[in-house]
Simulated scan of single mutants.
Amino acid sequence: MPETQPDLNRFFDVFTQAGDGIDTETLTGCFAESFLAGDASGARPVSRQTFLQALPRRAKMFAEAGVGPAVPDSLTPERLDDHYVLVRTTWTAPRAGGGAPVRLVSSYLLHRDELGAYRMVAYLNHEGLPLSRT
């Protein structure tokens, strides 16, 4: 079942809205039970529960840095096979006081199940504030 851009847009709309309000119930459906999280310091396996528990700390880190909620600017999917799509994304997060916004660049490896639901199986942070250690 091939993905479509509207399907991916809906997935990232849900992901973005749930992340803005730290809606862990909704975010649970966005991630595989365990996934790979990576940044410049390396990659590590993370349980979905551990990641969701770390989100308030991550939100606090953004707030302390004077950075507001990130909004996706672009989604560039690359279909890898019938079940996986790699999505490169760019995001913009406003700075408090009107400073230059923060540019965030991430890639997500999504698995699409037989019912058409996406789950993140890898989350790579390329540019922007670093992922907090979970």
Rank of each mutant, 00 (worst) to 15 (best):
E3W: 06
T4G: 06
T4M: 06
T4R: 02
Q5L: 14
P6L: 01
P6A: 04
L8M: 04
N9G: 11
R10K: 14
F12A: 02
V14P: 08
V14S: 06
F15C: 03
Q17Y: 08
G19W: 12
D20E: 09
G21W: 01
G21D: 05
I22V: 09
I22M: 05
D23K: 12
D23R: 05
T24P: 12
T26N: 05
L27G: 08
T28D: 14
C30G: 04
F31R: 03
A32F: 04
A32P: 01
S34G: 08
S34T: 15
F35V: 05
A37P: 04
G38K: 08
D39S: 03
A40Y: 00
A40S: 11
S41E: 08
G42F: 07
G42K: 10
G42P: 04
G42H: 05
A43K: 08
R44A: 15
R44E: 14
P45I: 08
P45E: 13
P45N: 15
V46E: 05
Q49C: 06
Q49G: 14
T50H: 10
F51G: 01
L52S: 13
L52Q: 07
L52V: 13
A54D: 15
L55R: 15
P56D: 04
R57P: 02
R57D: 10
R57M: 10
R57C: 00
R58W: 15
R58N: 15
A59F: 12
A59V: 11
A59K: 14
M61E: 04
M61N: 05
F62W: 14
A63Q: 15
E64K: 09
E64G: 05
E64R: 12
A65V: 07
A65T: 07
G66P: 10
V67Y: 09
V67E: 06
G68I: 13
A70P: 12
A70N: 01
P72I: 11
S74M: 08
S74L: 06
L75F: 13
L75W: 08
T76K: 15
T76Y: 03
P77Q: 07
E78Y: 03
E78Q: 15
R79A: 09
R79F: 07
L80A: 12
L80Y: 11
L80P: 09
D81Y: 05
D81C: 09
D82C: 05
D82Y: 01
H83A: 15
L86E: 11
V87R: 00
R88C: 01
T90N: 04
T90V: 12
T90A: 11
W91K: 00
T92G: 10
T92E: 06
A93D: 07
P94I: 06
R95T: 13
R95D: 11
R95L: 12
G97R: 05
V102C: 02
R103V: 15
R103S: 14
L104T: 08
V105F: 01
S106F: 02
S106G: 06
S106Q: 14
S106D: 06
S107D: 00
Y108A: 00
Y108C: 00
L109I: 09
L110A: 01
L110I: 01
E114N: 12
L115K: 11
G116E: 06
A117Y: 07
A117Q: 10
A117I: 10
Y118V: 06
R119V: 02
R119W: 00
M120F: 07
A122L: 06
Y123N: 14
Y123M: 11
L124S: 02
L124M: 10
N125Y: 07
N125E: 06
N125D: 12
P130C: 03
P130D: 04
R133H: 14
T134R: 09
T134I: 11
